[in-house]
Design a protein around this nucleic acid. Structure first.
Lengths: 213, 213
DNA sequence: CCCTTGCTAGTCAAACTTGATTACCAGTCG
DNA sequence: CGACTGGTAATCAAGTTTGACTAGCAAGGG
């Protein structure tokens, strides 16, 4: 799974209705251009693709306030919301060790009810354990690990990484069970988007004027 | 950086001269189809691309012993060897947290002299530290981390992951300095390819007859 | 007034990735 | 022997990702 659809769906959903540039700015605000493939091209492509597939509804309009070409606004459909939640749940449970997907999933975890988040994360640790077992069992040759030479270091790395992640996941579960953060249906949600016209306090310093210069 | 070029260059190099199917089998032997994007299409594409760019030399020939279409054999050029080593060094030093690149790099690390491997890995830990510092500093808002809400968990994950990797890297450095494994110029190298006609003792069970059935 | 700078918004070609599909040959089973 | 299975070797179309490029408008400077 690539992170882009999850990110874009999540961003559009938080806005209710958004055009490409708004999504792009949100993702930049989240720093997503640094830890995922959220480049302009990918974002616009994802929007179009998902509109074509019926996950988003495209309002062909708006000759754009404040310069630039006419823009299309997108709204998430019911289908799209289902898909969003499906992607989010999958990203939270499956152990595929891609940082971008994980990061996005955590960013959106509060869109789920607290109890479900905990359940999914527990399932995640279970799967990490399962994967760990399959690696240690499957990859070690019958005649002892010495056969592997330096190749054994690869598995060593995998195990090390998996263990670290399992540990982190346990910690997160504990914090969530301990009442941290505000989840779906618990009142005033965390706001993670820029309101129209508001300035981006984060950013990398530069905005993206012309994108390359 | 994608892992495919590194993997393909490394495979061709170990053979001296190889055709696509051979490379494909090596990568499967290494399990690379499971932890990287080493699918047939990508492999053949990479071979052609790199031949076009002069990293490989293509011998248009060989109407294939034992069935199948005529095959092209590739040989790595000097340019290609340089590029291979450059990619390998980059993969070893830079902290970009992509499992496939890391795994490939470790698999090929013994193509470098022992001393250089150690130097590169030390540089890697240095960069991890640097990155860690930039995350803790850059991403925490002025008015305290409470502002971040659950978003702080993302950084928490990053830090956790980076620490685990730094730890693992330290361990690897220690083992290498302690004399483990056989590096470039230290005699009989570790053999990680199938000799022509030899059977693959690993594999996932299935070979790839027709690839989809 | 016109020309540069800079932001808004998006397009495009080229490269890469994916999964399915093709073509050829050898053995073998009835 | 003829049909089928299975391995060898590669191609192809469709989809994705990338990085560079375009175009509109506004503000300010000279």
């Amino acid at each position: 799974m690539s992170a882009i659809r999850l990110l874009v769906l999540g961003a559009v959903r938080q806005h209710g209705r958004a055009h490409g540039y708004q999504v792009r700015n949100d993702l930049e605000y989240w720093g997503a251009h640094e830890w995922s493939n959220a480049k302009p091209g990918s974002i616009y492509h994802a929007l179009k693709q998902m509109a074509k597939q019926g996950l988003l509804h495209a309002h062909e309009i708006a000759p754009s306030t404040a310069g630039g070409p006419p823009r299309t606004e997108y709204e998430i459909t019911d289908w799209g919301t289902d898909e969003y939640l499906r992607l989010l749940r999958e990203a939270l449970t499956s152990y595929d060790q891609k940082m971008d997907v994980k990061s996005a999933a955590i960013g959106f975890i509060v869109d789920l009810p607290r109890a479900e988040a905990v359940t999914l994360l527990k399932e995640r640790t279970r799967r990490i354990g399962e994967w760990r077992a399959s690696v240690t069992e499957h990859y070690v040759p019958e005649d002892g690990p010495e056969q592997l030479g330096h190749i054994g270091e690869i598995m060593n790395l995998w195990i090390h990484t998996a263990d670290a992640e399992a540990e982190w996941t346990q910690g997160l579960i504990a914090r969530i069970e301990g009442g941290a953060y505000t989840f779906a249906g618990e009142g005033e949600p965390f706001v993670g988007v820029l309101v129209e016209g508001e300035e981006n306090p984060y950013a990398t310093g530069e905005k993206h004027p012309g994108d390359a210069r």
